[in-house]
Protein backbone atom coordinates (compact mmCIF):
# COMPACT_ATOMS: atom_id res chain seq x y z
CA UNK A 1 0.00 0.00 0.00
CA UNK A 2 1.37 3.33 -0.91
CA UNK A 3 0.90 6.74 0.61
CA UNK A 4 -2.61 8.03 0.19
CA UNK A 5 -2.99 11.67 -0.68
CA UNK A 6 -5.70 13.96 -1.86
CA UNK A 7 -6.22 14.16 -5.59
CA UNK A 8 -4.33 16.90 -7.38
CA UNK A 9 -7.52 18.00 -9.11
CA UNK A 10 -10.22 19.13 -6.73
CA UNK A 11 -13.74 20.48 -7.27
CA UNK A 12 -14.48 24.10 -6.45
CA UNK A 13 -16.92 23.33 -3.70
CA UNK A 14 -18.92 20.67 -1.95
CA UNK A 15 -22.43 20.80 -0.59
CA UNK A 16 -24.37 18.13 1.28
CA UNK A 17 -27.54 17.06 -0.48
CA UNK A 18 -30.54 17.32 1.88
CA UNK A 19 -30.95 13.55 2.06
CA UNK A 20 -27.24 13.06 2.81
CA UNK A 21 -27.35 15.72 5.49
CA UNK A 22 -30.37 14.07 7.05
CA UNK A 23 -28.52 10.76 7.31
CA UNK A 24 -25.39 12.44 8.68
CA UNK A 25 -27.49 14.17 11.31
CA UNK A 26 -29.01 10.83 12.24
CA UNK A 27 -25.48 9.55 12.93
CA UNK A 28 -24.50 12.68 14.83
CA UNK A 29 -27.51 12.26 17.10
CA UNK A 30 -26.24 8.87 18.17
CA UNK A 31 -23.45 10.55 20.13
CA UNK A 32 -23.44 13.20 22.87
CA UNK A 33 -23.22 16.75 21.51
CA UNK A 34 -19.64 17.12 22.78
CA UNK A 35 -18.66 13.99 20.81
CA UNK A 36 -19.96 15.00 17.42
CA UNK A 37 -16.69 13.99 15.83
CA UNK A 38 -17.51 10.34 16.55
CA UNK A 39 -19.67 10.49 13.43
CA UNK A 40 -16.71 11.21 11.19
CA UNK A 41 -16.51 7.80 9.51
CA UNK A 42 -20.24 7.55 8.67
CA UNK A 43 -20.17 11.17 7.52
CA UNK A 44 -17.27 10.55 5.15
CA UNK A 45 -18.95 7.39 3.94
CA UNK A 46 -22.17 9.25 3.16
CA UNK A 47 -20.15 11.92 1.38
CA UNK A 48 -18.61 9.18 -0.72
CA UNK A 49 -22.06 7.74 -1.43
CA UNK A 50 -23.17 11.13 -2.65
CA UNK A 51 -20.14 12.11 -4.72
CA UNK A 52 -18.46 8.80 -5.39
CA UNK A 53 -15.28 10.00 -3.71
CA UNK A 54 -13.98 12.23 -0.92
CA UNK A 55 -12.69 15.59 -2.07
CA UNK A 56 -10.87 18.32 -0.17
CA UNK A 57 -13.90 20.63 -0.03
CA UNK A 58 -15.87 17.65 1.29
CA UNK A 59 -13.30 17.09 4.06
CA UNK A 60 -13.57 20.75 5.00
CA UNK A 61 -17.37 20.52 4.98
CA UNK A 62 -17.35 17.43 7.20
CA UNK A 63 -14.86 19.08 9.57
CA UNK A 64 -17.06 22.14 9.84
CA UNK A 65 -20.20 20.08 10.36
CA UNK A 66 -18.63 17.96 13.08
CA UNK A 67 -16.78 20.87 14.65
CA UNK A 68 -13.38 19.25 14.37
CA UNK A 69 -10.06 20.29 12.80
CA UNK A 70 -9.64 19.50 9.11
CA UNK A 71 -6.43 17.57 9.72
CA UNK A 72 -8.30 15.07 11.92
CA UNK A 73 -10.80 14.34 9.13
CA UNK A 74 -7.93 14.15 6.66
CA UNK A 75 -6.19 11.58 8.89
CA UNK A 76 -9.29 9.38 8.94
CA UNK A 77 -9.88 9.72 5.20
CA UNK A 78 -6.30 8.71 4.40
CA UNK A 79 -6.19 5.91 6.99
CA UNK A 80 -9.09 3.89 5.58
CA UNK A 81 -8.49 2.64 2.06
CA UNK A 82 -12.24 2.35 1.48
CA UNK A 83 -12.40 6.12 1.14
CA UNK A 84 -11.66 6.99 -2.45
CA UNK A 85 -9.55 10.12 -2.64
CA UNK A 86 -9.90 10.69 -6.37
CA UNK A 87 -12.85 10.67 -8.77
CA UNK A 88 -14.11 7.19 -9.66
CA UNK A 89 -15.99 5.97 -12.72
CA UNK A 90 -19.50 7.30 -13.21
CA UNK A 91 -20.75 3.84 -14.17
CA UNK A 92 -18.78 1.57 -11.88
CA UNK A 93 -15.98 1.30 -9.36
CA UNK A 94 -14.62 -2.21 -9.72
CA UNK A 95 -12.62 -3.64 -6.83
CA UNK A 96 -11.11 -7.00 -7.76
CA UNK A 97 -9.98 -9.14 -4.87
CA UNK A 98 -6.38 -10.20 -5.34
CA UNK A 99 -5.75 -12.10 -2.14
CA UNK A 100 -4.57 -15.73 -2.19
CA UNK A 101 -7.86 -17.72 -2.55
CA UNK A 102 -9.11 -15.46 -5.34
CA UNK A 103 -5.68 -15.42 -6.92
CA UNK A 104 -5.60 -19.25 -6.94
CA UNK A 105 -9.05 -19.28 -8.53
CA UNK A 106 -8.09 -16.86 -11.32
CA UNK A 107 -8.30 -13.27 -10.16
CA UNK A 108 -5.30 -12.40 -12.28
CA UNK A 109 -7.34 -13.20 -15.38
CA UNK A 110 -10.10 -10.88 -14.10
CA UNK A 111 -7.58 -8.12 -13.62
CA UNK A 112 -6.35 -8.62 -17.15
CA UNK A 113 -9.90 -8.13 -18.38
CA UNK A 114 -10.13 -4.92 -16.40
CA UNK A 115 -6.80 -3.75 -17.72
CA UNK A 116 -7.78 -4.47 -21.30
CA UNK A 117 -11.26 -3.00 -21.12
CA UNK A 118 -10.71 -0.09 -18.72
CA UNK A 119 -7.02 0.74 -18.58
CA UNK A 120 -4.32 0.69 -15.92
CA UNK A 121 -5.47 0.15 -12.36
CA UNK A 122 -6.09 2.99 -9.91
CA UNK A 123 -6.76 5.28 -12.85
CA UNK A 124 -9.96 6.69 -14.21
CA UNK A 125 -10.80 5.25 -17.64
CA UNK A 126 -10.52 7.51 -20.65
CA UNK A 127 -14.32 7.88 -20.94
CA UNK A 128 -14.64 8.57 -17.20
CA UNK A 129 -17.06 5.68 -16.72
CA UNK A 130 -14.86 3.12 -14.97
CA UNK A 131 -12.20 2.90 -12.32
CA UNK A 132 -10.77 -0.37 -11.16
CA UNK A 133 -8.42 -1.36 -8.40
CA UNK A 134 -7.00 -4.45 -6.76
CA UNK A 135 -8.06 -4.84 -3.14
CA UNK A 136 -7.26 -7.16 -0.30
CA UNK A 137 -9.57 -9.97 0.85
CA UNK A 138 -13.24 -8.99 0.81
CA UNK A 139 -14.23 -12.08 2.81
CA UNK A 140 -16.00 -13.98 0.05
CA UNK A 141 -13.35 -16.64 -0.45
CA UNK A 142 -15.97 -19.39 -0.89
CA UNK A 143 -17.07 -17.66 -4.04
CA UNK A 144 -13.61 -16.87 -5.38
CA UNK A 145 -12.73 -15.21 -7.64
CA UNK A 146 -14.88 -12.20 -7.02
CA UNK A 147 -15.05 -8.43 -7.36
CA UNK A 148 -17.00 -5.74 -5.61
CA UNK A 149 -18.63 -3.43 -8.10
CA UNK A 150 -20.09 -0.30 -6.56
CA UNK A 151 -21.98 -1.68 -3.55
CA UNK A 152 -22.39 -5.33 -4.49
CA UNK A 153 -20.37 -8.51 -4.71
CA UNK A 154 -20.11 -10.24 -8.07
CA UNK A 155 -18.89 -13.75 -7.37
CA UNK A 156 -17.60 -16.91 -9.05
CA UNK A 157 -16.51 -14.80 -11.98
CA UNK A 158 -14.83 -15.83 -15.17
CA UNK A 159 -13.19 -13.41 -17.58
CA UNK A 160 -16.21 -13.82 -19.87
CA UNK A 161 -18.67 -12.99 -17.07
CA UNK A 162 -16.72 -9.95 -16.06
CA UNK A 163 -16.46 -8.73 -19.66
CA UNK A 164 -20.25 -9.02 -19.93
CA UNK A 165 -20.76 -7.24 -16.61
CA UNK A 166 -18.52 -4.34 -17.63
CA UNK A 167 -20.32 -4.09 -20.95
CA UNK A 168 -23.66 -4.03 -19.17
CA UNK A 169 -22.52 -1.27 -16.84
CA UNK A 170 -21.21 0.68 -19.81
CA UNK A 171 -24.62 0.30 -21.43
CA UNK A 172 -26.29 1.77 -18.36
CA UNK A 173 -27.75 -1.51 -17.16
CA UNK A 174 -27.41 -2.87 -13.65
CA UNK A 175 -26.19 -6.47 -13.80
CA UNK A 176 -27.46 -8.82 -11.13
CA UNK A 177 -25.05 -9.25 -8.19
CA UNK A 178 -24.20 -12.64 -6.65
CA UNK A 179 -22.59 -15.85 -7.97
CA UNK A 180 -22.23 -16.16 -11.72
CA UNK A 181 -21.81 -19.93 -11.93
CA UNK A 182 -25.43 -20.79 -11.28
CA UNK A 183 -25.32 -21.65 -7.61
CA UNK A 184 -27.30 -20.03 -4.84
CA UNK A 185 -25.11 -17.90 -2.53
CA UNK A 186 -22.27 -20.12 -1.33
CA UNK A 187 -24.02 -23.48 -1.61
CA UNK A 188 -22.04 -26.32 -3.22
CA UNK A 189 -22.07 -26.09 -6.97
CA UNK A 190 -24.24 -29.13 -7.62
CA UNK A 191 -26.77 -28.27 -4.94
CA UNK A 192 -26.80 -28.91 -1.20
CA UNK A 193 -25.17 -32.11 0.09
CA UNK A 194 -26.05 -31.79 3.76
CA UNK A 195 -28.97 -30.55 5.85
CA UNK A 196 -31.27 -31.98 3.19
CA UNK A 197 -34.03 -32.70 5.67
CA UNK A 198 -35.81 -29.57 6.85
CA UNK A 199 -36.59 -31.09 10.24
CA UNK A 200 -32.90 -31.02 11.03
CA UNK A 201 -32.96 -27.27 11.24
CA UNK A 202 -36.52 -25.98 11.36
CA UNK A 203 -36.96 -26.81 15.06
CA UNK A 204 -39.75 -29.37 14.54
CA UNK A 205 -37.58 -32.17 15.96
CA UNK A 206 -36.98 -30.36 19.20
CA UNK A 207 -39.00 -31.32 22.27
CA UNK A 208 -40.96 -28.51 23.95
CA UNK A 209 -38.93 -27.15 26.82
CA UNK A 210 -40.50 -26.23 30.12
CA UNK A 211 -38.74 -23.26 31.53
CA UNK A 212 -39.05 -23.15 35.30
CA UNK A 213 -40.92 -20.14 36.73
CA UNK A 214 -41.63 -18.74 33.26
CA UNK A 215 -44.93 -16.86 32.84
CA UNK A 216 -47.72 -19.00 31.41
CA UNK A 217 -48.20 -16.96 28.28
CA UNK A 218 -44.61 -17.36 27.20
CA UNK A 219 -44.63 -21.10 27.66
CA UNK A 220 -47.65 -21.35 25.37
CA UNK A 221 -46.02 -19.18 22.76
Amino acid sequence: MSVRRLSAVQPESFAFKPETLEKVNWWIKKYPESRRQSAVIPALWLVQKQEGWVSEPAITAVAKLLNMPQIRVYEVATFYTMFMLEPVGSAALIQVCGTTPCQLRGSEALMKVCKDKIGPKDTLSADGKFYWQEVECLGACTNAPMAMINDYYYEDLTPENLTQIIDDFAAGKEPKPGPYNGRHTSEPLGGATSLLEASLYDGSAAKPVKIPNAPEAEVKA
Binding site: M1, R4, L6, E56, P69, Q70, I71, E75, F79
Partner: peptide
Protein backbone atom coordinates in the same frame (compact mmCIF):
# COMPACT_ATOMS: atom_id res chain seq x y z
CA UNK B 1 -3.46 24.87 16.82
CA UNK B 2 -4.68 21.50 15.55
CA UNK B 3 -2.91 21.62 12.23
CA UNK B 4 -0.42 18.75 12.37
CA UNK B 5 -1.39 15.14 11.96
CA UNK B 6 -0.30 11.74 10.75
CA UNK B 7 -1.87 10.76 7.46
CA UNK B 8 -2.09 7.35 5.84
CA UNK B 9 -0.96 4.32 7.81
CA UNK B 10 1.60 1.62 8.23
CA UNK B 11 4.64 2.04 6.05
CA UNK B 12 2.94 4.92 4.27
CA UNK B 13 2.35 6.96 7.42
CA UNK B 14 3.53 10.55 7.14
CA UNK B 15 3.53 13.56 9.42
CA UNK B 16 2.17 16.67 7.79
CA UNK B 17 0.04 19.73 8.33
CA UNK B 18 -3.30 20.07 6.58
CA UNK B 19 -2.53 20.69 2.91
Amino acid sequence: VTEMGMISRGEGAEITSYL
